[in-house]
């Protein structure tokens, strides 16, 4: 099953490679990994999307907790949570495609953030499925470039990771 693990870790050189190294050394799966400093610049917040049997997920959580740089972690998928991903996508926009793309962007609540005679660059956020669906909807259009941020997650309600 797919799990989203949210981690607070020391914002120190090497902390990222400890986490990444753990996943490769123990042959755990990483679908995506995002990391950036938080409002407290001594801490980073990382979101990892992984998958595995319940036993493996339990081990991943325990092994992450053992890393000295990890301050706290939470498996978001255990409770109600919000997932968001940002995608930037550059497509061919000529002739009738120009209107077609615009319509699709509206339907998916994206934004066109850069325009040339022949291309649009679109920004769109949502969960992974929505972004996949958008790319799918563009199947008749020539896609030049896709940049995805990887997933970010946060718990619903008043639960916080701190």
């Amino acid at each position: 099953m797919r799990h989203i693990i949210s981690i607070l870790l020391e914002n120190e050189s090497g902390a990222l490679s400890r986490v990444a190294g753990l996943f490769s050394a123990r042959a755990y799966n990483i679908e995506s990994l995002t990391v950036a400093p938080t409002d407290d610049s001594t801490l980073s917040r990382m979101t990892i999307v992984t998958s595995g049997t319940e036993e493996i997920i339990e081990q991943i959580n325990k092994q992450l907790n053992k890393l000295v740089d990890v301050v706290k972690l939470n498996d978001l998928t255990q409770d109600a949570h919000i997932e968001r991903e940002l995608m930037l996508i550059k497509v061919q926009a000529t002739n009738e495609a120009r209107d077609e793309v615009k319509r699709l962007v509206e339907i998916f609540r994206g934004r066109i953030i850069d325009v040339t005679d022949t291309t649009y660059t679109i920004e769109i956020t949502g969960n992974g499925e929505k972004l996949d669906a958008f790319v799918e909807a563009l199947s008749a259009i020539t896609i030049h470039e896709v940049v995805r941020s990887g997933l970010l997650g946060i718990s619903r309600g008043d639960r916080v990771l701190s």
């Binding site: 036993e55 339990e58 081990q59 325990k62 092994q63 907790n65 053992k66």
Partner: peptide
Amino acid sequence: VDPASISKNVR
């Protein structure tokens, strides 16, 4: 003492 040792190989 190590939680990761528990239920690693055997439930």
